[in-house]
Nucleic acid binder design. Structure first.
Lengths: 206, 206
DNA sequence: TTATGTATAAATGTATACATGTATTCACCA
DNA sequence: TGGTGAATACATGTATACATTTATACATAA
């Protein structure tokens, strides 16, 4: 069990919702769970902090991030800005091979939809859409922002019901993507993300 | 000398250019310099990695990041996207107090211009422009992207000569900002950043 | 009752020692 | 001469022990 491995395990637990926003992470406790000393645990927490999944305060317990509705709203706006930009520029670089790959990933993610772990498939789909842009830094930032959202989505348990619309959106986006309809694809994607934003903020309001 | 302090010192050295892109950072060496053990040094490197200033590879020496022209080009494009967005939304929320503060910061940064440490003043100015937007996450990301660029600017020593145009741009942006001219301010800012991008990429081409 | 201060417990921060992995050197051989 | 492999040096990874800081509990006083 190396530091990286511990980080991976903890990340899984955070993204799946078994470690909830604001929950405290004690070095000693985690070290015992994994049968290691606190040193690799500290490394792991550092890694997760670098991904903005946990916050570290000197001499205080680490915590899973817990954002307000205002903060999450801004993060969704950032996602819309960056994901739409990546999508536009990706459409310029589409090849037949890419379309093949995208439709393949779409089918695979459809199967996972609504089941535990669906978020990974959703990201795989969107990432496949954005990859042809070649904008690796965009994609890296988008992934981090999505994880931040995912933590709260998992905790507030929204979205179970809106799966149908979710899948329809994906299908529409692929169609416009394929046609090279940049404004259409951007608008649909923006609406898709806005729906997710509203859904989460509504769930948090209770 | 705590881990945070070491991180701060190293960050200074990286941003000022005395630690160059790609330079190796040995835990043992740094520990000796600061008269501490390697443990707090590891923490410091973790902090810097979380800010994307250094890269860590398991069982290998840490290195100051070193990006290609292509990667830096993308990062400048990201900055243009995010900084223009933050600027637009900030302009909606301007108050007399804010204008006062912005002109004060502008004057202060003018004095530092062209001298060592100018980059901090430049960021203080732009940050003052963006703050009224209330978009803290935008600003955090922008700051990181700027630091990434700054590392390479410091290493390739461009920009010494274009200080005049730099200052003129800032003055123009403030005027448009004050007038509430959103498209004008955005265009000027975009041009300002594009010039910086070209300047760096040109310097790197040699 | 409430507030405050002290004693105790608990958690994190760091130094040292050792384990493990990586790079380098140099001898040896085809 | 050029390449291969073992031996060595070097750097990072981790466990243990101790130091320091923060949180908790409890007693005491206003």
């Amino acid at each position: 069990m190396t530091g990286q491995n511990i980080a991976n395990e903890l990340r899984q637990n955070i993204l799946s919702g078994s470690l909830k926003p604001g929950e405290e992470l004690r070095q000693t406790e985690i070290a015992q769970e994994f049968n290691v000393s606190r040193i690799p645990v500290r490394d792991a927490l550092g890694i997760l902090a670098s991904e903005n999944l946990v916050v570290l305060n000197p001499n205080r317990k680490a915590k899973v991030i817990a954002l307000t509705q205002t903060e999450l709203s801004e993060i969704f706006d950032l996602r819309i800005l960056l994901e739409c930009n990546a999508l536009s520029l990706a459409i310029e670089n589409i090849t037949p091979d890419i379309l093949d790959h995208v439709t393949y990933i779409l089918e695979k993610s459809n199967i996972e939809a609504g089941r535990p772990g669906w978020a990974a498939g959703d990201w795989a789909f969107h990432k496949a859409l954005y990859q042809p842009s070649g904008l690796s830094k965009h994609i890296q930032i988008i992934e981090e922002l999505r994880q931040t959202c995912q933590i709260h989505v998992a905790a507030y348990g929204e979205l179970k019901n809106s799966t149908d619309q979710w899948l329809k959106d994906h299908k529409i986006i692929v169609r416009l993507y394929q046609k090279g309809d940049v404004p259409g694809a951007k608008n649909t994607l923006a609406a898709h993300l806005t729906a997710a934003k509203k859904s989460l903020l509504h769930a948090m309001a209770d």
